[in-house]
Simulated assay, not measured.
Amino acid sequence: MIDLTRAAEVAGHVPDPEIPAVTIADLGILRGVVAEGDVAVVKLSPTYSGCPAVLAIELAVEAALRDAGIPARIERVMEPAWTTDWITEEGRDKLWAFGIAPPVAGGKATLFAAPEVNCPRCGSEATERVSEFGSTPCKAHYRCKGCGEPFDYFKCI
């Protein structure tokens, strides 16, 4: 019999390969774990359909469960589409502490509009977007006019 609570805990502790300060549970991409016979089926949603980290995440979850002695299969869930609203408060706090400005809860994605973003280093509201795309496509690159530091902003999706 599969211990689904343990399987979800093990899967949920897998770090995001692009932002290792947060787990897949923090990001809200772990949609659930169900039993299919003697196998735990882990349901994951990519942050967007073209996310280059999706396969790495799936393999890391599968390996973590295998290492924990839990037979598992990964199921990619595309609907409903993942949204930044699914990032947990703990995940938002971890992003901030890591130096990435988290998306505004309930924020709207706007193509090429630069949202007002506080600097995660000093908290200043005096920031400017440098580039629509940062270190990954889901982030924009900003600069703080207060402390002068560059930082990423996790865009609303």
Results as ranks from 00 to 15, higher is better:
residue 1 M to Y: 04
residue 2 I to D: 12
residue 4 L to R: 12
residue 4 L to W: 08
residue 5 T to A: 14
residue 6 R to Q: 13
residue 7 A to C: 03
residue 9 E to L: 07
residue 10 V to A: 04
residue 10 V to F: 03
residue 11 A to L: 04
residue 12 G to P: 01
residue 14 V to K: 01
residue 15 P to E: 04
residue 15 P to M: 03
residue 15 P to V: 06
residue 15 P to H: 04
residue 17 P to G: 03
residue 18 E to S: 11
residue 18 E to P: 13
residue 18 E to Q: 15
residue 21 A to L: 06
residue 21 A to C: 06
residue 22 V to T: 13
residue 22 V to M: 11
residue 25 A to C: 00
residue 26 D to S: 00
residue 27 L to I: 08
residue 30 L to G: 03
residue 32 G to E: 06
residue 32 G to Y: 09
residue 33 V to S: 03
residue 33 V to R: 03
residue 37 G to V: 11
residue 38 D to G: 15
residue 40 A to K: 13
residue 40 A to C: 07
residue 41 V to G: 10
residue 44 L to K: 14
residue 45 S to D: 10
residue 46 P to I: 05
residue 47 T to N: 15
residue 47 T to P: 14
residue 50 G to E: 01
residue 50 G to V: 07
residue 51 C to N: 09
residue 52 P to W: 02
residue 53 A to W: 06
residue 54 V to C: 10
residue 54 V to G: 05
residue 55 L to R: 12
residue 57 I to L: 07
residue 58 E to H: 11
residue 58 E to D: 07
residue 58 E to W: 02
residue 59 L to F: 07
residue 62 E to Y: 00
residue 63 A to Y: 04
residue 63 A to C: 00
residue 64 A to M: 02
residue 64 A to R: 03
residue 65 L to M: 03
residue 68 A to R: 07
residue 70 I to Q: 01
residue 72 A to Y: 02
residue 74 I to H: 06
residue 75 E to K: 11
residue 75 E to T: 11
residue 77 V to S: 12
residue 77 V to M: 12
residue 78 M to G: 06
residue 79 E to T: 15
residue 79 E to I: 01
residue 83 T to N: 08
residue 83 T to W: 05
residue 86 W to Q: 12
residue 87 I to F: 05
residue 87 I to C: 05
residue 88 T to D: 03
residue 88 T to Y: 01
residue 89 E to C: 01
residue 90 E to D: 13
residue 90 E to S: 08
residue 90 E to M: 02
residue 91 G to N: 09
residue 91 G to R: 08
residue 92 R to D: 12
residue 95 L to Y: 04
residue 98 F to C: 10
residue 98 F to R: 09
residue 100 I to Q: 11
residue 102 P to F: 00
residue 103 P to H: 01
residue 107 G to R: 06
residue 108 K to G: 07
residue 108 K to E: 14
residue 109 A to E: 10
residue 110 T to L: 09
residue 110 T to R: 10
residue 111 L to F: 15
residue 113 A to D: 13
residue 113 A to R: 14
residue 114 A to V: 13
residue 114 A to S: 14
residue 116 E to P: 06
residue 117 V to K: 13
residue 119 C to V: 09
residue 121 R to A: 09
residue 122 C to N: 12
residue 122 C to D: 15
residue 127 T to Y: 05
residue 128 E to P: 07
residue 132 E to N: 08
residue 132 E to K: 09
residue 133 F to E: 14
residue 133 F to G: 03
residue 135 S to E: 15
residue 138 C to N: 08
residue 138 C to Y: 05
residue 139 K to I: 12
residue 140 A to N: 10
residue 141 H to D: 08
residue 142 Y to L: 11
residue 142 Y to A: 06
residue 143 R to W: 03
residue 145 K to Y: 00
residue 146 G to E: 13
residue 147 C to K: 14
residue 148 G to T: 08
residue 151 F to C: 10
residue 152 D to S: 12
residue 153 Y to K: 07
residue 153 Y to P: 12
residue 154 F to R: 01
residue 154 F to N: 01
residue 154 F to W: 10
residue 154 F to Q: 06
residue 154 F to V: 07
residue 157 I to Y: 14
residue 157 I to F: 15
